[in-house]
Nucleic acid binder design. Structure first.
Length: 564
RNA sequence: UACCUCGUGGUGUAAUGGUAACACAGGAGAUUUUGAUUCUCUCGUUCAAGGUUCGAGUCCUUGCGAGGUAACCA
């Protein structure tokens, strides 16, 4: 073990385990994983973690590796085509490709039925006539063993007959169930003769009315994995207790093409949000957010619409690692990932979110000049653009303080500030309305301070602010998004019975009208921008029109200014 | 008062019996026509107690703590 050369790139426990399997030529060195969502909701960041793991493993292990997309559609009462479509879109958007390997558990219904018959024949499964309540009562508790069903020792012939009649539709829902015969006294509840088939007179989105019995997850999953020759079945920690059942099925069903094994990792928990499909569904159903793709949602479609990039999500998934410790990741780490990506690629524009009018009293009336601005200081190839400048401008209310706090070095009465890439201005007069609200700042500009000029003997101006020309600025709708919840763990805080919606952040969406430079008139829906000194914004793909963009705030810029 | 899993800076992770490190966050500074970016520095860590060992975050024992598990959901 000591002579392995420095494969010094550190790996998580899953990758380490897989590397060992490959080295040992287990499955001839193949690595076949799968991402197996149930199409009962939209994918979220927790799924992104799993997608990056499973598809990532496929990318990392060369030609003898692949990742399947398999819909775990064994419960027709909860599943819809809408979800199937959105899931495929989300996986593709993240940049992964399942190629020809698209599967549905429902494709295996006939085979799975056959496996169940074979288990009955081996005396390893039986039809139980007990009611739901009786079964629950006889299963025992966490500290006491269960007791056998009176139907547990039915003959193989009788079981075969009853199971066939279940399939034929002779029974109502709940009347009978097929159970694996394992161990009613097992300390693992999942091994106390788990139900593997139940009757559901429901229409399935793919198989229609062909079936009225449906396999349970615990039964269908390992066998589906085996049928696809999956080598490594990776899932989250809550399935740890299902592993013995997974292994029991792989061991007791004959003729399986693959011998997969299951390993578990901790799911993603993020502060100030939720990662439970059921709870996200509640937010959607009760109209507390504007759909699954509301930019405040932790869904893939939500963060996409917010302006997150696939690169940022993939980088985030890499950085959070993979362990068995149920950790709580700070939202700041996700924001860091997207800032890092957008900083390199987003085009800069000037936008004034809360406008104050500035009149340059010594600037000729009616004159317009065009100032050259850098599109992206991180990438010279992105070039420059011309932005109009005239006598009347807007600056942001945040960039002016009548009575400045300590350390504030933007515009103040009698003070000087630089209009970025233009020139310096001095605030000569503050005009207010009858209620004392500031309506206008009357300023003078200094022609000697134009961009590039280096006047000597002049005190250095500390503040540099952005601006837009009042006559040329576009009025655009800007949606300022903030965290969805006011507490780090809305789930935890609310408790089992509590209502997590009480912690919804009432200020998570603020819609304002902003003044923005005219160049964005041609911005296509789905484009990323940095509003200089403000944050990253994304033209909403649904509501933007050419010439009339709607901006979603992806994330604010970091602000190093601390008020003292 | 069952079983399973897990405890490393504030947070997320690495160290595979051999100098406890990286990222984020925080602090200080430099650069900066974005209080951004970039760069430098800095802060701060092995749940506890025993044991094995020349040497333990790592192995063993016990304790403590956390998460999970009793659908005809996945």
């Amino acid at each position: 073990m000591s002579d392995t050369p420095a494969a010094s790139t550190s790996q998580d426990f899953i990758r380490e385990m897989i590397a060992t399997d490959v080295a040992d030529q287990r499955n001839d060195g193949w690595v076949i994983t799968r991402f197996p969502p149930e199409p009962n909701g939209y994918l979220h960041l927790g799924h992104a973690k799993s997608i990056c793991l499973n598809f990532g493993l496929s990318e990392e292990n060369g030609p003898r590796a692949r990742c399947h997309l398999r819909f775990d559609d064994t419960n027709p009462t909860k599943e819809e085509i809408e979800y199937v479509d959105s899931i495929m879109e989300d996986v593709k958007w993240l940049g992964f490709d399942w190629g020809d390997h698209l599967f549905y558990a429902s494709d295996y219904f006939e085979k799975l039925y056959g496996f169940a018959v074979s288990l009955i024949k081996k005396g390893l499964a039986y039809v139980d006539d007990q009611t739901h309540e009786q079964m629950r009562a006889t299963r025992g508790t966490l500290t006491s063993p269960g007791t056998a069903s009176p139907y547990r020792d039915r003959s193989v012939e009788e079981n075969l007959d009853l199971f066939a009649r279940m399939r034929a539709g002779e029974f109502k829902e709940g009347e009978r169930v097929l159970r694996a015969k394992i161990d009613m006294a097992s300390p693992n509840m999942n091994m106390r003769d788990p139900a593997i088939y139940r009757i559901l007179h429901a229409h399935h989105h793919r198989t229609g009315d062909a079936w009225c019995i449906y396999p349970m997850y615990d039964y269908a999953h390992p066998l589906s994995d085996a049928l696809e020759s999956i080598t490594h079945s990776l899932c989250t920690l809550e399935f740890e207790h299902h592993r013995p059942l997974y292994e029991w099925l792989i061991a007791n069903v004959d003729g399986l093409p693959g011998q997969p094994y299951q390993r578990e990792f901790a799911r993603l928990n993020l502060t100030y949000t939720l990662m439970s499909k059921r709870k996200l569904l509640k937010l959607v159903k009760e109209g507390l957010v504007n759909g699954w793709d509301d930019p405040r949602m932790p869904t893939i479609s939500g963060i996409r619409r917010r302006g997150y990039t696939p690169e940022a999500i993939r980088s985030f998934c890499k950085i959070i690692g993979l362990t068995k410790y149920p950790s709580l990741t700070e939202l700041g780490l996700l924001e860091h990932s997207v800032r890092e990506d957008l900083n390199k690629h987003a085009q800069r524009v000037y936008a004034v979110l809360r406008p104050i009018k500035v009149v340059l009293t010594n600037y000729p009336e009616g004159q317009v000049e065009h100032v050259e601005l850098v599109n992206n200081p991180e990438n010279e190839a992105d070039g420059k653009r011309l932005v109009p400048l005239s006598r009347e401008l807007y600056i942001d209310a945040d960039d002016f303080m009548e009575t400045p706090s300590a350390g504030f070095h933007r515009l103040v009465p009698g003070g000087e500030v630089r209009l970025k890439y233009a020139f310096c201005i001095i605030c000569q007069e503050v005009i207010k309305d009858a209620d004392g609200n500031i309506t206008e700042l009357r300023c003078t500009y200094d022609d000697a301070t134009r961009h590039g000029a280096k006047p000597v003997g002049r005190p250095k101006v500390k503040g540099t602010i952005h601006w837009v020309s009042a006559a040329h600025a576009l009025d655009v709708e800007v949606r300022l998004y903030d965290k969805l919840f006011t507490v780090e763990q809305p789930d935890e805080q609310a408790g089992e019975e509590g209502d997590f919606t009480q912690f919804l952040n009432q200020e998570s969406l603020q819609i304002i009208s902003a003044k923005i430079e005219p160049s964005v008139a041609t911005a296509k829906p789905g484009s990323h921008f940095q509003f200089e000194r403000v944050g990253y914004f994304f033209t909403d793909p649904k509501d933007s029109q050419l010439g009339k963009p709607v901006f979603n705030r992806t994330v604010q810029l970091k602000d190093g200014f601390v008020k003292k």
